[in-house]
């Protein structure tokens, strides 16, 4: 009887604080933002210069948040099942690099590979100016904690399991290319991606949580890659016309 009381008290405390436990654990690690530039290098004239005159992205949350989506409990006399589903939103605090700097660095690197122009810091001397304004930028995922307990007379056995889901990220920004005051083109770029989670067979729960965070950052990185490749292609098409 004493065991049962302890067990239910433990269960209650654990379920109340599951989102805090996960958040504390996620806050201990930082995920990298990067990707492999796999587009074939282009050999073209890069004398045209472009400067980024404006880059605004305040869409990515400052901190990572965890909130409870739902909780399912099957409390039977001999069998007890509890499932907590948590929604996690990736924040800047969980990235080991500033997202905006990552974007600019990736744009610069990609432009050196496939762009028929070169990026410059000098706004006044550049042939074109580029404005980028984000209106959506997020990565989120679902995390599940499950426990099952079976009671046989005075004994009980319990299993506990955590698992991550594939991360979903979405980016939407508008880009405007100008020559002086003339608008050359304006376009909205949208990318969304469900990034498969590598595995759920983890022995170390901290590694699972860390990889869960990395999965969201990976999704965001690869979405950025897709958008940057399209943007450079469009700039190439427009500056040469």
């Amino acid at each position: 009887m004493k065991n049962l009381v302890f067990y239910f008290c433990g269960l209650l405390l654990t379920s109340c604080s599951s989102s805090t436990i996960l958040l504390n654990s996620l806050n201990k690690t930082k995920a990298p933002l990067y990707y492999l530039h796999d587009t074939p290098k282009k050999d073209c004239d890069r004398t045209t210069t472009i400067s980024i005159s404006e880059f605004s992205n305040n869409q990515l949350p400052t901190t990572t948040t965890v909130e409870k989506i739902n909780r399912k409990i099957i409390p039977l006399i001999f069998y007890n099942y509890e499932e907590v589903n948590l929604g996690v939103k990736l924040g800047k605090s969980s990235l080991n690099q500033d997202y905006n700097n990552f974007f600019k660095y990736a744009l610069n690197t990609e432009s050196k590979r496939t762009g028929c122009f070169s990026l410059t810091d000098s706004v006044s001397s550049a042939d074109f100016s580029l404005q980028i304004k984000y209106d959506t930028c997020f990565a989120n995922s679902k995390y599940q904690m499950k426990s099952t307990t079976i009671f046989i007379l005075l004994f009980y056995g319990t299993t506990y399991e955590e698992s991550g889901s594939p991360a979903y990220s979405k980016l939407r920004f508008s880009a405007e290319l100008k020559r002086g005051e003339d608008v050359i083109f304006t376009k909205n770029y949208l990318a969304d991606r469900v990034q498969p989670f590598i595995s759920n067979n983890y022995k170390d729960i901290n590694k699972l949580r860390s990889d869960f965070l990395v999965n969201m950052a990976e999704s965001l990185s690869l979405n950025t890659k897709d958008c940057i490749e399209l943007l450079i292609q469009d700039i190439n098409d427009n500056i040469n016309n």
């Binding site: 990298p32 990067y34 990707y35 492999l36 796999d38 074939p40 290098k41 590598i198 990395v214 990976e218």
Partner: peptide, 20 residues
């Protein structure tokens, strides 16, 4: 090796491996 597709896929996996 820009035309080696298998190598590109392999290196993409290496990037994943390092990431995780």
């Amino acid at each position: 090796y820009p035309n080696d597709n298998a190598l590109r896929n392999i290196i993409a996996l290496r990037t994943r491996y390092i990431r995780y």
